[in-house]
Every structure is written in structure tokens, then in C-alpha cells.
């Protein structure tokens, strides 16, 4: 999967036609074969753009910054990124007419060791659902799979799960990188910060981390698109996908196979209801 040439051509064309102010893409980081996001405003820098199977980050996150707000933006999206873009459009965070979206029919992103990443193996929608221009050949929607880590953890006894997650929350340093890297965490003021209003409560305790991560994952329940930007950003390498995939699997099984952002104008699972929702857990 290498669309470097096409993306450079498209970006150059858009700049000469005057259709965009900023182009958001990937560039090489300059010292190894990994890539970082880049915001291009000068048409001469277009040659920096690349796209290979190492383009891991979700660029939709950059639509919330000052560099792109109220500007015409060109954007590269993979399948999962386009789902988050779809949700941002539905939730009125960006205007469609300000965007020029280059969709990719993604074949899976590769990690440092050369293996396909876990979320790409389990990917349901590899093709971009929102795009002005689609690169590659669409492969269609794939069947939903329950995450292997979730299945393994759910099979463990309660005390083991408790001990496992206590360690996870203990290792959190409350840097909030997960929140900042998430394209769907766009609130100007976050309710998690209410806890940090005082020095004491804001202390980096296991309890505070539990509160922050649980609240965060429940706010993203039914909206998370499994792009794993949070996990890539986490300096403590916490398995944040466990929380999201758990919510996703519960929602998929119980709420009419809801998958976030696949259908345009479809909001998160908590913004709608059905009379058929399970009721057996309520007395």
C-alpha cells in the first residue's frame, strides 16, 4: 500500500486551484522509517507528503486545532479515520464544505515489528466512508470479530481481572495524552478536569486514574471507532483499547449491531434507543 505519488499530486492540484489553505498528511520523521503527521500550508512543501502502510495516526484529530479551524482543509483518511470524521460531521464539529477528503481503501497498517496491527486485523470498515476522492480498490465491509484480548480477560476470574486492572490504573500518569489524541474528545472543558480543580484531588493516585479513564471511556462508548490513537499516544503503554473494545462489543451485541460512524448522520449508541433493548438485568 503506497499512495505517496497520488496524494502529492492531489495536494499540489488543490493548492494550485486554490481549494484549500492547509493540507494534513503524513511525512517521514527524518531518522527512521516511521511517520509523523504534517500540516502543509506552503505548496512547495507538498513533496514531503507520504503514505505507506506505516501511516498510523488518525489525522482527523488535527481538525480540532487552531491551524485548521475555520479554514479549508485537505485531509487523508483511512477507513477508521473516516468513521471518526463521519461522527465529527454528524456532531457538527466540522463543516463538510470546508473539507477536501482523500479517502484510502486501507489494507492494514504495520507496526514496528512488521506485523499487521491488531485493530487492522479486526477491522470492520477498511474503506473510507467519507471521501471526495477514493484511492485503491474497495474491499467492502468485513464481519465483526470480538477482540481476542477482551475474550481472554472476560474468561478470567474476578479477582484476577481486579488485580490486572489495578495495575493498569496504577501505571497511568494522568498526562491526558489519550484525551488529547482522541479526535472525538473535542470539548473545550473536560469534566475529568473537575477532579483536578484542587491540588489534592488532582494528585496522581490510582483512584484519580480510575475515575479519569472510566469516565473517558464511557463518554466514548458507542462513538469510539477503534483508531487506537490513544494507545499510540500513551507514554505508559496502557492497554486502553480494552476499555473501548469492551464497550464496543457490549453495544454491538445488544444494540442492533451498532458500529460508530459507519452510516452518515448516525449518532452514537447512547443518542438513540430501541424498545428491543435488553431489560433482563433490571429488577
Amino acid at each position: 500500500m503506497n499512495y505517496t505519488k497520488q496524494i502529492q499530486d492531489i495536494a499540489a492540484k488543490l493548492f494550485t486551484e486554490g481549494k484549500i489553505d492547509v493540507f494534513v498528511g503524513y511525512r517521514m520523521n527524518g531518522f527512521d522509517d516511521n511517520q509523523v503527521p504534517v500540516l502543509i500550508t506552503d505548496p512547495q512543501d507538498v513533496s514531503k507528503l507520504v503514505f505507506t502502510d506505516k501511516s498510523v495516526f488518525n489525522l482527523v484529530n488535527y481538525l480540532k486545532t487552531d491551524h485548521t479551524r475555520r479554514k479549508r482543509v485537505g485531509l487523508v483518511v483511512k477507513g477508521c479515520d473516516s468513521r471518526s470524521l463521519n461522527l465529527m460531521l454528524t456532531e457538527s464539529q466540522v463543516k463538510r464544505e470546508n473539507l477536501y477528503v482523500v479517502g484510502i481503501c486501507c489494507e492494514g497498517i504495520v507496526d514496528d515489528s512488521g506485523h499487521k496491527m491488531q485493530n487492522c486485523v479486526e477491522c470492520v470498515v477498511p474503506d473510507a466512508v467519507v471521501s471526495d476522492e477514493l484511492l485503491g480498490t474497495p474491499s467492502g465491509q468485513k464481519p465483526y470479530m470480538v477482540n481476542v484480548d477482551i475474550a481472554a480477560l472476560a474468561a478470567k476470574p474476578l479477582t484476577e481481572r481486579t488485580a490486572y486492572f489495578e495495575e493498569v490504573f496504577e501505571n497511568c500518569i494522568r498526562c491526558n495524552a489519550c484525551r488529547h489524541s482522541c479526535p472525538l474528545c473535542y470539548c473545550a472543558k473536560c469534566c475529568i478536569d473537575q477532579e483536578t480543580a484542587t491540588l489534592y484531588n488532582g494528585a496522581n493516585t490510582t483512584s484519580a486514574a480510575f475515575h479519569a479513564l472510566m469516565t473517558w471511556s464511557l463518554h466514548l462508548a458507542g462513538r469510539c471507532v477503534d483508531c487506537r490513537n490513544c494507545e499510540k499516544a500513551c507514554p505508559s503503554h496502557l492497554p486502553l483499547h480494552l476499555l473501548h473494545k469492551q464497550n464496543e462489543s457490549v453495544i454491538y451485541e445488544n444494540f442492533q449491531e451498532h458500529l460508530a460512524g459507519v452510516i452518515p448522520e448516525d449518532r452514537g449508541a447512547f443518542y438513540k434507543y430501541s424498545l428491543k433493548d435488553p431489560d433482563d438485568f433490571i429488577m
Binding site: R161, T162, M214, N247, A269
Partner: peptide, 11 residues
């Protein structure tokens, strides 16, 4: 439902 399952999941 989601909250109950998630809280049960984390222990």
C-alpha cells in the same frame, strides 16, 4: 447496561 458490564469487566 454498558456501565454495568464495563465496571464488572474492570473488576
Amino acid at each position: 447496561l454498558v456501565t454495568k458490564k464495563l465496571l464488572n469487566f474492570v473488576g
